[in-house]
Design a protein around this nucleic acid. Structure first.
Lengths: 323, 323
DNA sequence: TCGATCACCGTAAACGTTTACGGTACTATG
DNA sequence: CATAGTACCGTAAACGTTTACGGTGATCGA
């Protein structure tokens, strides 16, 4: 039944026929036990929290891309759901100890991420969506937060903005550092500085965006522009502004990230976009390229790649300051 | 190591000590093979699509509730991700054949749902989030779509509305039928009728809501109120209205469903809300109550329950029509 | 005709657990 | 002291696969 070469076509046919007749399908536990592999790749995520700041549909789309690759190899993708009541490191240990998956995909990478070292020590193949200072040589893909910062700053400075605010997630997730640091560098290259007072930490959800707006409005020397690092915070931020009678693109320039939700904001959001599906495909290929059983299928996969995003021009930054 | 009674405390201690020393943890495949159980409960969902119409965080919160119950029994919850390229029935067959999970949670229940019969035949314990005309005696929980319809209609009619529109998901998901049918009955009880021309089918996402607004605006005899059945469509619907210069709560009464996103709509949405976490807890208990190994823990769990939602009054329906 | 090669098939061991069961040493009972 | 009972431990079988290996019959070459 496993397509071995030393079996007669005729016999194979009869076996398969009988199997179909009896409704036989191999038991996964037996199979796993024998060959030490599960044909499962796990995507670890935490429930009850919104750690990523992507909308929920973000991952669903990424998953779909991942699966188109996995389907070719009879691998199944499952989401490993770490409860908010359990320590993620403990959870990961448990998953690995149980021999649950042949490989893992990690997201929400922290600036220092102990999970990497653990998995490397156990020799579990894994790929991460997001870089980290912790580097054990694993493949990673990451969105181009530095590019987004650079382009945004250049664009805003060219339009006369001098006092520019930046958001960052409230926790130690790595992307926050990349985004803020590059914003500061880009400003410095123009002879400007990033005012630490204008770096707003926020939960990566709508409520976080609303809170950022409130903090921003409380400043006496209000910035003329802001960069929003998370997809979902724009909605709350817009609301916070409008309650104070302010309008993006008129009273303050806003550059953020596009999402299915953001399309229904008014004024339309200037923001970065990407193909989530393609990202999933690349993620899957990077992982398989490091797994001995599959690596020959992907001899020239990008093992590490900064994923570019495209800027979609909207109205939220459509004004220039007088010189 | 499994806490059997016929072993000396002293011996047990030594064994556990040695196990800890060696870093021993039982291999799940071996364990599953022997006892025919995996300690895994699967929650089936489809990737790449937005079949549910809940925001993405909806399920993450439900999961968290489910897990608080499962944790007590050393059960793990994983999300089984069915690719958009694979038939859900086939996928389910594959999952079951592999003996992947001890039990399943199904959502997005269709009006007629073949998955129920399949699982019942295979004697796989499962619970569904959503009713169906297909009934194999399995436990289910469902949101009170009929109650929402009834309360909404009563409220709107009391405020003078006579011409009321209703949305429903574009596919054959069961909740659409419940909602529309009950809306019609509630109107009939007031001597009114539900105009079939005012039943709008929509994708259960923001874009669907936007499309509903466009369809509604195209009607020559425009309704004065509308019920939105999905959480996420309000955002697109609001946008569609505002592009035409219309405002909820002034030009049309809107009653929908609350979500983390909807809190940032203006005017604030009148809508129904529920505790997602509690729903998850109830879901888990209903499932375990039907599994022989756990049923004695939950002797009086609600095996079938219509889950009530609370109406939060906002501004989106805050006007009455002249008599 | 005989030995060598080949194509194919059947058998048995092994993966890592759990559990039924038999065995041993000790205690209690009369 | 013999028997029964008890507490605990060790052994081996079983779960359902995969795979290494030995075996059989046929074909081929000399």
């Amino acid at each position: 039944m496993n397509g071995r070469p030393d079996v007669n076509e005729e016999t194979r046919r009869k076996v398969l026929e009988a199997a179909a007749e009896l409704g036989y399908v191999p038991n996964q536990s037996g199979r796993s036990l024998r060959q030490g592999t599960t044909n499962i790749i796990g995507f670890m995520m935490q429930t009850g929290t919104e750690i990523t700041g992507q909308g929920d549909t973000f991952f669903m789309s990424v998953f779909d891309g991942v699966q188109t690759v996995f389907a070719r190899h009879h691998l199944d993708l499952v989401a490993l759901l770490c409860s908010s009541e359990e320590d993620p490191d403990d959870y990961l240990r448990r998953v690995v100890a149980r021999g649950f998956a042949d490989g893992l995909i990690l997201s929400a990478t922290q600036r220092h991420d102990a999970r990497f070292e653990f998995l490397a020590k156990r020799k579990i193949p894994f790929v991460t969506l997001g870089r980290s200072l912790t580097d054990v040589g694993q493949p990673w893909l990451d969105l181009d937060f530095e590019g987004m910062a650079q382009i945004s700053i250049d664009r805003l400075v060219a339009r006369g903005h001098r006092r520019i605010a930046v958001t960052r997630p409230h926790d130690d997730i790595n992307l926050g550092h990349l985004f803020v640091d590059q914003s500061a560098r880009a400003l410095a290259a123009r002879g400007l500085t990033l005012d630490p007072d204008l770096v707003f930490s926020s939960k990566p959800n709508e409520a976080g965006g609303y809170h950022v707006a409130q903090q921003l409005l409380a400043k006496k020397d209000r910035p003329t522009a802001i960069l929003l690092v998370n997809e979902t915070i724009a909605i709350g931020f817009y609301r916070g502004l409008s309650e104070a009678g302010l309008k993006p693109g008129r009273d303050i320039a806003v550059i953020g990230r596009q999402s299915p939700q953001s399309h229904f904001l008014s004024p339309s959001l200037t923001g970065f976009t990407l193909s989530r599906r393609d990202l999933g495909i690349a993620l899957a290929e990077a992982l398989l390229a490091t797994m001995p059983a599959f690596s020959h299928f992907y001899p020239d996969a990008d093992l590490r790649k900064v994923w570019p995003e495209d800027l979609v021009e909207g109205e939220s930054d459509a004004f220039s300051l007088p010189a």
